[in-house]
Nucleic acid binder design. Structure first.
Length: 118
DNA sequence: CGGGTGACTTTAC
DNA sequence: CGTAAAGCCACCC
């Protein structure tokens, strides 16, 4: 199964925020998901959930991050259009055991909350 | 420096 | 269910 993207980084980043974002995403366990908002909060920019998605698209798309495990607050796969095919992201999650309800991840069962001390 | 653009979130109607 | 607006902040003109 393919969990990671291994292309080259488009750019280097020295941003503390982004590095923390990557560190957090890297820790998401198999079969769990987390949200942009939680990551942003743990990375230090409480209200900048947009930056998390932006960071993934610009930098991480390419590192070895399980970025399919990041969904929005409602469990919707808002980033699926960046996975090649519209169904790829969901397939990856389902292959890890994540269940969906009405095209959304069942967050009550599969939400993972980052609890790290950065 | 300023305006546009988001893998977002929240509130409001 | 839907749309709108505001706040958010790095990046790219």
């Amino acid at each position: 199964m393919i969990y990671f993207f291994t292309l080259k980084l488009k750019k280097e980043t020295n941003s503390d925020f982004f590095n923390k974002v990557f560190q957090i995403v890297e820790m998401i366990p198999c079969g769990k998901v987390t949200t942009y908002g939680l990551i942003a909060q743990k990375a230090g920019l409480k209200s900048s959930a947009r930056m998390v998605g932006w960071a993934l698209n610009s930098y991480a798309f390419s590192t070895r991050l399980p970025c399919h495990r990041v969904v929005n607050r409602n469990g919707e796969l808002t980033g699926k259009k960046y996975f090649g095919t519209p169904t790829m992201m969901r397939e990856l999650l389902e292959s890890e055991g994540v269940e969906f309800v009405n095209d959304r991840v069942d967050l009550k069962k599969f939400l993972w909350t980052p609890e790290i001390a950065l």
